[in-house]
Simulated assay, not measured.
Amino acid sequence: MRKILVIGIGAGDPDHLTLQAVKAINSADVFFVLDKGEAKSDLVRLRHDILQQHAGQRPYRVVQAQDPDRDRTAPSSGYSPAVDDWRRRRADICERLIREELADGECGAFLVWGDPALYDSTLGILEDILDRGEVSFVHEVVPGISSVSALVAGHRTGLNQVGRPVQITTGRRLSEGFPSGVDDVVVMLDAHRTFSRFRDEDLHIYWGAYVGTPDEILISGRLSEVADRIETVRAEARTRKGWIMDTYLLRRVPAQGPEQVAPEGGAGG
């Protein structure tokens, strides 16, 4: 039986890998890498750097394939069909890689940015492949440090305030309005700088781009005071690198200030 490992490798720093992830890397025979093109070649290089640092001298193979493009111009009504089409084409590629590049009894691995369970398609795609019934394998998941964890650590703050919930959402969802009953909202996958729509509200922002990488940028402050700076820095970074990955935490400012976070020793996830 073939075996697939889905390994969370953190937000970009090779030191983000857990001991469990290092052990998993050292048990894999083949690593599957989906190349997103020249503009995002940094992401492929970082994966190779992680393997060179943590895979030791044992033999392994790296198999690359071109990641299919997704239609990012689709209107809101066409968002789900566009994502479904992209996932189907990605599943076609992954199925072929597993069938042709992984022999019975071998172990293959996908190195997933951040944590495989948080806004990543790999687990769903593997389930789709298994449902097709054309190739069989068992798979395991190794959790990783997400960009959310790395973001708040970089800003030296907590993810939630005392006794209050936190919500993780997307820029597309945030554009529908700030969630009710929530004081802390983490926003991912926001290509349209949706935070700017809330600059008139009493909010604090903790923003980060390329979190965990040598290009990391962190900016925090009252949204009304730093929104323009974030937009400028973000645009410059995107132009310089050709792509950007950013995440941010929006926090309603309580009467005593923005730093009323859970006390040390409290429950955590």
Rank of each mutant, 00 (worst) to 15 (best):
E259I: 11
H48M: 14
G12N: 04
D200W: 00
L189S: 00
L46M: 14
D67F: 12
L17S: 01
D184R: 00
D69E: 12
L174Y: 08
A117F: 06
W207Y: 08
A237K: 03
S224N: 12
S121M: 06
A65T: 02
E106G: 07
I244C: 03
G114D: 00
I93Y: 02
Y210L: 04
L250P: 04
V226R: 08
I145K: 05
Q64P: 00
G105I: 04
W243Y: 15
S149N: 13
D183Y: 07
V142D: 05
T170S: 15
R72Q: 07
I4C: 07
R87F: 05
G78I: 00
I217H: 09
T18I: 10
S136M: 05
D71T: 03
D115C: 06
F137S: 01
T213P: 02
E236F: 10
V185T: 07
E38Q: 12
L218K: 01
K3T: 13
I25T: 02
Q64I: 06
F137Y: 14
R172L: 10
K36N: 10
T213G: 01
F195Q: 03
A39D: 00
L218N: 04
P214M: 04
A24F: 07
V142T: 12
G208V: 06
V187L: 06
E38L: 12
L43I: 13
R197S: 07
A227M: 05
S220K: 09
V166W: 10
Y119G: 08
A209H: 00
D85C: 05
F110P: 02
I244M: 10
A255H: 13
Q161A: 15
E176L: 12
I125Q: 00
H48R: 14
E264C: 11
G212S: 01
R156N: 14
D42R: 12
L249V: 10
A24S: 09
V261A: 12
E127L: 10
G154W: 11
G266Q: 13
A24G: 02
R61P: 04
P258A: 15
G158W: 12
R156C: 13
R172M: 09
L159F: 12
R229A: 13
R156I: 07
R164T: 08
S175G: 03
D15L: 13
I125V: 14
C107Q: 05
A267S: 15
G37N: 09
A91T: 01
S220D: 14
N26F: 07
A82N: 04
Q57G: 03
G124W: 09
F137K: 02
K23H: 11
K3Q: 15
T247M: 09
D35C: 05
A55T: 09
G257W: 10
A21G: 13
A150L: 08
R72S: 03
F178N: 06
R96V: 04
F32P: 07
G8S: 11
L43S: 06
N26I: 02
L218E: 02
P165Y: 11
I217K: 11
A191Q: 07
G12H: 07
G105T: 00
K36T: 08
D85K: 09
D200Y: 02
S80H: 07
Q256D: 15
P179K: 05
P81N: 03
R99M: 03
P68Y: 08
R252T: 15
T169Q: 08
L5P: 05
P75E: 08
I145F: 04
L102K: 00
V138H: 10
R89F: 04
